[in-house]
Amino acid sequence: MKTTFLLSTLFLLLTASFTRKERISTPIEKPPQNLNISFLLDLSDRIDPKKNPNPTMQYYQRDVLYMKSIVQAFLNHVKQKKIFKLNDQLQVFFDPAPKSPQINQLSQQLKVSFDKNSSKKSIITTEQIFATVPIKIYQSAIRDRHYVGSDIWGFFKNSVTDYCIKDQHRNILIIITDGYMYHRNNQFKKNGKSTYITPALIREQKLNTPDFQSVIKRKNLGFIAPINNVGNLEVVVLGINPSPNNPFEGDVIKQYWGDWFKSMGIKNYYLKTAELPSDLDPVLQKIILADKP
């Protein structure tokens, strides 16, 4: 009788142990993240194929294909989610707003959102819109030739928090620019730092030698931080295109941008040069579809 009792007790203990181990080892399914992706497009004369030609592929054509890669990754994310869990947005911004009525009208089509009421047809429609509308915007800007620069610094100061950050979302801002920052309405300096960077400024500060980093540190050079504590924003800069006259120009530009993001509390950022879209596509897919907390 005693032996039977001991065997029964041992069996119960082993069963409980295995059950507990199975329960512990069962992975907890992580809820799908909500994406909030914003584009900030630089429609300055950098896109002009006459002023800045590239025989391999014009820069405005690269921009359009960069956008296509991002949008495809976004839509792949949407397709993987259950309909009732959809809460994802995609939008395009300019700063300043283009004066062209056609561009403004076209850009309205580039603000899309998906929620539990969205249909599969809306996904197809979004693919079609982003396959045709961005190229029309660039062609219109090039045809008008009213280049007023891109106020990226002003966008961060006045708009990024309101336009690009949503609660309970993974917020990603895609900036497509050549890396130089300049706008005629935002040009000032403070304690060595500035709101802009141009080839002339780089030459003026003698940032054309291997020790450019020590020069930046000694002179306290860089961008002025217009805001702080935006750690819930990720930024991807695409299309950096430094002047070939200075072998360190690209490194200087990336140093400025990287230091700027850190000063604003942005931890996750990516700085990419104007590579061929086919080469950059898998990189962008990986960034957008990364499983961030």
Rank of each mutant, 00 (worst) to 15 (best):
M1L: 11
K2S: 11
K2Y: 07
T3N: 11
T3E: 14
L6S: 02
L7Y: 04
S8R: 11
T9P: 00
L13E: 02
L14M: 09
R20L: 12
K21P: 00
E22M: 12
I24D: 12
T26Y: 10
Q33D: 06
N34L: 09
L35S: 09
N36L: 01
S38Y: 06
F39I: 09
L40T: 00
R46W: 13
D48P: 03
K50R: 14
K51H: 10
P55L: 09
T56Y: 07
M57Y: 06
M57N: 05
D63V: 04
L65H: 05
Y66I: 03
K68M: 02
K68P: 01
A73I: 07
H77L: 08
K81G: 08
I83E: 01
I83K: 06
K85I: 02
F94W: 13
D95E: 15
D95M: 13
I103Q: 14
N104H: 00
Q109T: 02
F114Y: 15
K116A: 15
K116E: 14
S119W: 09
I123M: 03
T126I: 08
E127I: 08
I129Y: 11
A131E: 15
A131S: 15
A131K: 13
S140Y: 01
A141R: 01
D144S: 12
D144N: 14
D151I: 10
G154I: 04
F156I: 04
F156Q: 02
K157H: 04
K157Q: 11
S159L: 08
T161P: 00
Y163I: 01
C164G: 01
Q168A: 03
I174V: 15
I176Y: 04
I176L: 11
T177Y: 05
M181H: 02
H183N: 15
R184M: 14
N185M: 12
F188I: 02
K189F: 07
G192Q: 07
K193L: 07
K193A: 10
S194D: 09
Y196K: 01
P199S: 01
A200Q: 10
A200G: 01
R203M: 11
E204N: 12
L207H: 06
L207C: 06
L207I: 07
D211C: 06
Q213N: 15
S214Y: 14
G222K: 04
A225I: 03
I227G: 01
V230Q: 08
G231M: 08
V235Y: 07
G239H: 00
P244W: 10
N245Q: 12
E249S: 00
V252C: 03
K254G: 07
K254M: 11
Q255S: 11
G258A: 12
F261P: 04
F261R: 03
Y270S: 13
Y270V: 11
L271G: 06
L271D: 07
D279H: 03
D279A: 06
D279W: 00
L280D: 01
L284D: 11
L284A: 10
Q285R: 13
Q285A: 12
D291L: 08
D291G: 02
P293R: 14
